[in-house]
Design a protein around this nucleic acid. Sequence first.
RNA 1: UGUCCGAUGGUGUAACUGGCAACACGCUUGAUUUUGAUUCAAGAAAGUCCAGGUUCGAGCCCUGGUCGGACAACCA
Length: 552
Amino acid sequence: MTEEKSLNFLEEIIENDLKAGKYKSIITRFPPEPNGYLHMGHAKSICLNFGLALKYGGKTNLRFDDTNPVTEETEYVESIKNDIQWLGFQWAEELYASDYFEKLYAFAVMLIKKDLAYVDDSSSEEIAKQKGTPTQPGTNSPFRSRSVEENLTLFADMRAGKYKDGEKVLRAKVDMAHINMHMRDPLMYRIKHAHHHRTANNWCIYPMYDFAHGQSDSIETITHSICTLEFIPHRELYDWFIKNLEIYPSHQYEFARLNMTYTVMSKRKLLQLVNEKHVAGWDDPRMPTLSGVRRRGYTPKSIREFCEKIGVAKRENLIDVGLLEFCVREDLNKISQRRMVVFDPLKVVITNYPDGKSETLTSEDNTEDANAGHREVPFSKEIYIEQEDFMEVAPKKYFRLAPGQMVRLKSAYIIKCDEVIKDVSGKITELRCSYIPESKSGSDTSGINVKGTIHWVSIPHAVKIETRLYDRLFKVENLGEAEGDFKEYLNPDSLQVQVAYAEPAITSAKESERYQFLRKGYFALDPDSSKDKFIFNRTVTLRDMWAKEAKK
RNA sequence: UGUCCGAUGGUGUAACUGGCAACACGCUUGAUUUUGAUUCAAGAAAGUCCAGGUUCGAGCCCUGGUCGGACAACCA
């Protein structure tokens, strides 16, 4: 049975273009500026651009939009390439807008010769004033009527370094009264005596986004140039340059960017969090960056699935981060190794178990995967259970341990709580329990049926580990609507570091592996770990119906 | 006082281009369960921003509004 899925608006455009014979195959591009790390919003764009090309048998270029040397660095280039590949995509060609600087310069000269561009000596303030407002037309620059010859000389001089930063710019000659602000003689080139991460000091003039992006698309014969909504007003200019340069007509299409609850999704804001040390770095597991979610333990597959599920449209949206969590649980449930780890230990002494004895039990590595195999788990007279798995006075629907009550220890025995030991202050320090020898997991002949099963760890065999428990980075759902500085809404409890006690199998943990700590959540080994210090990041908790029930 | 974009359950995306508004997350209830996980089953939840119009029939077309967003960086 083939599932007929409806098309999103971009797929519809492409299918129509293909059907009409407008293109034989499509070419898309992913155009990051190397001035920051990629985040979930980029993941949406990557999945879209690469996904479309994959679906329709085309190809996708990776093109760095590196036209502003003062903010761009090679470090970012490397991280971006790494993130895209981690997500599972491979570009056809690795390209840079800076590869086209010479061509772009020639394009500019061509426009000057057509009297469609001129060198302007106005200051940025003057140019801003000339622009007018959305409701009032702009005014012409006093330098607008320079001759072609003079413009040619001046522009060559700009390139030659005869002027200081900001002294002159090259502007397109369109229409200062145009209804679209972007058409009011937009800047094409500005002077920046700055070192560029690829062209070093070869240039001291750099093209603006509007005079680089569309032309780069055209040079690469990009058929569908997909960007976010805020570029809609740029499209008219995009088309204007292509038309007047008489070059390959790429077309721009816009979709709504991704917003998620309880987080921010702008490079500027993320950079601020990093610089002001609100997080440990770009790859802090609380960050919505790809390096952050990777370190947190998210899988590429779950992110691709998420991007599939959120869809693509032109309306602004705010996606519930719960959907992302659903996607990662769905994947992790199938692939993660199960382990038992106690976070808030409560000592249990099994009174009828021989002193000094221990035995080896076996437990499934993954109940969802019959091929996952089994591991050995040591059992002994003294074990830890979770404090929350015992209640001295238990409500009716509580089926864990309580005085006189029984529970199953996962993959081990059924135990009964006989006695509660407290210290002078009344705090429970220990439980005395008896076990049912015939109830051993796998060969249970006791005939006893208990409702609850809890995880545990043998005290003499326990391995201390560090766990890093993450919560949402911000306290408010919609940061877009929050007043004032977004940093005021940071969640002070977004990271909680806790020591926990794990079964010995934890010592063979690998960074590439995913783990489910039974009843506690999904975890991934953090790269900060060493041979004698295991650090685990909690990717996401398990769904917890009991927590809801207990609240009632 | 402009131009452009958008408006469908709580959230997001659909609706064969005019034919009884569907899917996913979330929520509720039940079953299964040696993870209160997973899995399975059932259910609640929108009459499609508003007002007119065209039509046998409108979420889809037309007109006029309302609301939200974008646009005046030598950023991308």
